[in-house]
């Protein structure tokens, strides 16, 4: 008698695996933290996604409209330039992906990070740092991102983002 494990892994048995969906669509919010990252995200946003939404946080330091009583108001812009409340956006997210260019101002990470930790939303940060990026520039970005990113990727170029979003079913 072949063992349970032998039978279960035969080519024939593999054909009986259930094909129904095993997850519901995930809400992934991609937020560019600086101007250079924003430029990269814009191109990506025009592709077809399963509901991924793209934002920039570059206007976070500008005066924001009054947010309803929340102690930590902050505003994002969607790609059409409309203001969006960070807390509202984060509250509806399964994953927040922050994208930063090493050496650029990633100061928005703390506001976004706080909103995520308040709502228990998983945060991933992607730092683009080419082989020639200085260590100081990178460590400045890390100092701002490490406290808030539960997963951090330092990639040499931007083409990683697309594969990552596909892999995450964004």
């Amino acid at each position: 008698m072949p063992s349970e494990s032998v039978r279960a892994t035969s080519a024939r048995e593999i054909g009986f695996r259930i094909g129904d969906a095993n997850s519901r669509p995930r809400k992934v919010k991609v937020i560019a933290l600086d101007r250079k990252a924003a430029a990269m995200v814009t191109g990506l946003a025009s592709k077809t996604w399963n509901g991924a939404a793209f934002f920039t946080a570059t206007g976070l330091d500008a005066p924001a409209p009054q947010a309803g009583g929340f102690a930590m108001p902050g505003w994002l812009a969607d790609l059409a330039g409309r203001a969006r409340n960070i807390v509202d956006e984060v509250a509806g997210a399964d994953v927040v992906v922050m994208i930063a260019m090493a050496g650029e101002d990633a100061g928005a990470a703390s506001l976004i990070g706080e909103a995520c930790s308040l709502r228990r939303v998983m945060t991933t940060a992607l730092v683009i740092a080419g082989a020639r990026t200085g260590d100081d520039a990178l460590s400045a970005s890390l100092a701002l991102l490490r406290p808030w990113a539960l997963m951090l990727v330092i990639a040499e170029d931007i083409d990683y983002i697309e594969d990552m979003l596909v892999a995450l079913r964004a």
Partner: peptide
């Protein structure tokens, strides 16, 4: 137990799988 060649179209990867995602990339 995944089968000889795992069907990766059915995976639900999460953020901590970024090492694997990056290696494939």
């Amino acid at each position: 137990s995944m089968g000889a060649i795992v069907d990766r179209t059915r995976e639900n990867l999460v953020s901590t799988d970024n090492g694997i995602i990056m290696a494939r990339h």
